[in-house]
């Protein structure tokens, strides 16, 4: 049996805290990091995020693979910024002139974006998806949305297995994905089949849930308690974030 694509890869070190603490800490850290204006402070934020990611215990390869996705999108922005921000000339390639200010902006954005994603992977990497759903529900996300999230998480694991079975059946018929029309149409049919199967499944689930008296309400049964160490961590975090802001504004 394959693990769900959403099963946590990180360690349990941070996951033993109340998940609400992790979510709140992440949002605060992200807000502060995005508002930073100096590379020094942004570098400190990145270092802090690296420490969080290390504490989160996500394997290094996994971490790099996920950062690579971010870098792919960022590359377009980072490669053009030095040439588009007006300012003092720094390097000249033919008709193009890179400016110091542009380079500065690009470096700043790269530091901040990586810091936020690293902190996210570190803080939430060890959480079970259902635990995250409960935490968001306790933090005031609308009930319907939380229910949808919890039900979706469960279905993703099942449908991923269905998808693997269908793909295996295609491989057994010597299907090799290539960059051609045949592949795209075959994958279109695969997605269509997945939808048909999932609709049948959803009818069965709905019938089963009605049999058990489902009236449109799931109860959030979680055992997490907000404990004293959680408050201590949150209180301890605030001066650190304030320090980061002070470093940014005063230097």
């Amino acid at each position: 049996m394959q693990p769900s694509p959403l099963s946590p890869r990180g360690g349990r070190l941070l996951a033993q805290h109340d998940p609400r603490l992790l979510v709140v800490a992440l949002v605060l850290f992200a807000l502060v990091t995005v508002s930073l204006k100096t590379p020094t402070a942004a570098a400190v934020a990145l270092a802090a995020a690296l420490a969080l990611a290390a504490a989160g215990g996500l394997p290094l390869r996994e971490l790099l693979r996920r950062l690579a996705v971010l870098e792919g999108f960022m590359l377009v922005v980072l490669a053009t910024l030095p040439f588009t921000v007006p300012g003092e000339a720094w390097l000249t390639f033919g008709p193009l002139t890179a400016t110091r200010e542009g380079l500065f902006t690009a470096v700043l954005i790269a530091l901040k974006a990586n810091a936020v994603v690293l902190a996210l992977l570190g803080l939430l990497g060890g959480l079970e998806p259902a635990v995250l759903g409960h935490a968001l529900g306790r933090l005031g996300l609308p009930e319907k949305l939380v229910h949808l999230l919890l039900l979706t998480v469960r279905q993703i694991a099942l449908l991923d297995q269905e998808q693997r079975r269908l793909r295996q059946a295609m491989r057994a018929r010597a299907f090799v994905p290539r960059s051609d029309r045949h592949t795209w149409i075959s994958y279109g049919n695969l997605i269509g089949m997945l939808l048909v199967r999932s609709l049948e499944r959803s009818r069965r689930i709905e019938a089963a849930m009605r049999c058990r008296g489902f009236q449109g309400r799931l109860y959030l049964l979680d055992s997490h308690r907000w404990r004293f160490p959680d408050t201590a961590w949150l209180v301890g975090l605030l001066p650190l974030l304030a320090g980061l802001l002070a470093l940014d504004r005063l230097s």
Partner: peptide, 16 residues
């Protein structure tokens, strides 16, 4: 609320 299970299954399908 009654449509939640179905919406969840389709959301999961699109995710997968």
């Amino acid at each position: 609320y009654q449509a939640l299970p179905q919406a969840a299954v389709l959301a999961a399908t699109f995710f997968v």
